[in-house]
Design a protein around this nucleic acid. Structure first.
Lengths: 340, 340
DNA sequence: TTGTATGCGTTATCAA
DNA sequence: TTGATAACGCATACAA
């Protein structure tokens, strides 16, 4: 293997293989109409030169970048990191690269990140949730860039969605706690501002309670960022209520873990005095004491299926535009029937 | 704003602004030698057309892609996801995009991912650890692509490193436990095959014990993947030893959390019967009962500093080639002096 | 089955 | 300060 000063180009491979650039290009792109012997010479020459195609030139000429973008709130939360892990793994099986950007739950920043992705020529964009600036979607549509919502199952006019129904998930939590006999509820939600998923779970929870005759105005809802100490603080506030809730639904396992810590510190028994339901089914759900009852979010599945969507041909995509995944209730130790 | 069928190109902006493409290019690239009035016309025209530059063409012509690659073992472990989060945040401040690939701790797969990154034209690559195929590094060097090791402070002949000394970290854990009076040790290490960091921590731990007169052959070391259940299983094996260890160092907080779960199940009191030290200081270290004594890995700092390195000019980089960050011991509740 | 010629959209070089 | 022109590396249409 020669040590090249710069880098071998396609034409250098052609020269060494004693054929034309077009033939090299054909071999590189798997075009079957190439003589076996010539193909072999080309492959050998490319290897000898350590030839690596120039993706920019390729993209410019073919208008196919084999680049996909993803904009997620943060990688610092396992629920997103795991989705991205699965997404990337699937894409790279097909030699598609993933550019990943974080928005910090800020839809204005998300717009800026989207612009950068458009400039990079991504062929599709994976987004989280369905709350986005109209300008963001308009830009993607103008550039004919497909996008997929994740963590939600609401597909809009354009775009696709692979995820779950947050409202339904909230209702599931409420129904489970109602069935345990609880009558005093509280909720620790994520920040619902510009966050349709957090808002959906809250609304579903309150809707289901209301269907059972509980006035939603009597259910205290506090919001916190997805951090342990916010969960703790929120639980403290809930426990200051005149009539303490006996059942608390948390919008995330992190918040729930914080809530449990609060109870430990305050000497409140879980689940004897208060039942706590989390959301996500992160690894930490097995680490709290008591272990956490929670709703399982299929993060890995979403990543894989979103990848399959963007890898699909435009005609196949029509059938894949909306995919609702099931949310499972995982019952562990943090919930119990209400005490009489 | 017009609704474009395809997408406006630089020449369209030039036409609308009534100037040459060259001038538009100058404005877009912040070249100061442009008349104020013309500049304004160009900016206005670009906005009106919803113009977004074609990154591929730009890259092809200028040989600057503003793309950085990262290859990490997995995003499914907070210690890496957090580093990448910080890395990406810093890069995007400078309009540099990050392509992220996972290798699953497989250095052959890492090579394939590196090849893909080279093809995409990344200007730098962020790697984890210092164990890589020679072919991987050779390829990067041949293509004049800078690379940075993270999670290690060992810089090689070429390349840079921002991280910490794993061997020293292992010794720190040993020293702490020795000072608590322990004499029977065990270790639950990560898989050390092709993993210099896991091996380094193990070696440091054993080295320090040996310096205190403990024969390393008498210290049981079991290896597990970074998963809760592996931690549990490894701890079970350690507890089957003839003379049970009174102090166990785990190569990761995940393993340590699993070990604590094992102790709960087996009725072994932590830290009264066995002290456990973790590694990473993940959020979960505060969720175990007892809370975990551990060594803090500066994941966020590594990401930020690695970003600063790849963003630096070649001349600046010389001063930044090696950066060792401190590892702090965080004492919580899972360790105690040995019982007499 | 192979080769020749052209152009993708941009920036760099040069001249004006 | 501005414009004309060429070239980046490759894939494709077309010719042979």
């Amino acid at each position: 293997m020669d040590i090249e000063d710069g880098s071998a180009k396609l034409i250098d491979v052609a020269r060494l293989a004693n054929c034309s650039p077009a033939t090299v290009s054909r071999v590189l792109n798997g075009n079957p109409n190439v003589n076996e012997i010539v193909r072999d010479r080309v492959v050998r020459a490319a290897r000898e030169l350590g030839y690596v195609p120039n993706g920019s030139a390729r993209a410019l000429r073919s208008t196919r970048t084999r680049l996909v973008g993803a904009i997620i709130p943060t990688l610092d939360h396992a629920i997103y990191a795991t989705m991205v892990d699965a997404l990337q793994a699937r894409l790279s099986e097909k030699d598609v690269s993933l550019i990943i950007n974080t928005s910090g739950y800020d839809i204005d920043l998300e717009y800026e990140q989207a612009r950068l992705l458009v400039e990079r020529g991504v062929e599709s964009v994976v987004l989280v949730g369905s709350t986005h600036l109209p300008a963001t979607l308009a830009m993607l549509e103008q550039k004919r860039i497909d996008y997929v919502y994740t963590y939600t199952s609401k597909a809009m006019e354009s775009g696709a969605a692979v995820g779950f129904d947050n409202e339904k998930a909230g209702r599931t939590a409420a129904r489970y706690l109602l069935d345990l006999g609880h009558a005093q509820f509280g909720m620790i939600a994520g920040i619902t501002q510009d966050n349709d998923r957090a808002a959906g779970r809250r609304d579903g929870f309150l809707n289901e309670l209301e269907r059972s005759g509980i006035d939603r105005a009597t259910v205290p809802v506090v919001e916190g960022a997805y951090r342990l100490d916010d969960g703790r603080r929120c639980m403290e506030r809930l426990m200051e209520e005149g009539t303490r809730p006996t059942a608390v639904f948390c919008g995330s396992d992190i918040l729930a873990a914080g809530a449990i810590k609060c109870c430990h510190a305050a000497g409140i028994a879980v689940p004897r005095q208060v039942s706590i339901v989390g959301f996500d089914n992160l690894e930490i759900a097995e680490l709290t004491s008591p272990e956490l009852t929670t709703l399982e979010v299929p993060a890995r599945d979403m990543g894989r299926i979103a990848a399959d969507y963007v890898l699909a041909s435009p005609s196949q995509r029509l059938h894949l535009r909306q995919r609702e995944l099931a949310i499972r209730l995982i019952v562990r130790e943090s919930t119990a029937p209400v005490r009489r």
